[in-house]
Amino acid sequence: MSGHHVSSAKFLWGVAIALLFLTYVTVAVTWIHIPEPWNVVVAIAIAVVKSAIVAAFFMHLWWDTKFNLLLLITSIVFFLILIGITLLDTLYRIDPVPSF
């Protein structure tokens, strides 16, 4: 049964160490002052990788039915719809339609 995957203790420890290492990286990159838009991109990218690791291995998505993964992806897509379309308004309040 796909839902009953048993991870080895060694593997779980490995995942945790990877997460702690990425935590160190995300703090460390703030010391080297990456220029404006890219610092956010790097911080988010690391956070996304960390979450993906947690979801895939701690939450067993790697071995789980695909539908549960689909649920997670759906929630992210709809969050992006919420923020994406809202930004169409809030970023363009002052100027009229840019191409006009």
């Binding site: 169409l88 308004d89 009229p96």
Partner: peptide, 17 residues
């Protein structure tokens, strides 16, 4: 999920939206 802003046409959202 893509159309909510049609309730806000005169609420002051950007013309692009």
């Amino acid at each position: 999920f893509l159309v909510w802003g049609h309730h806000m046409f005169v609420a002051g959202q950007s013309s692009l939206a």
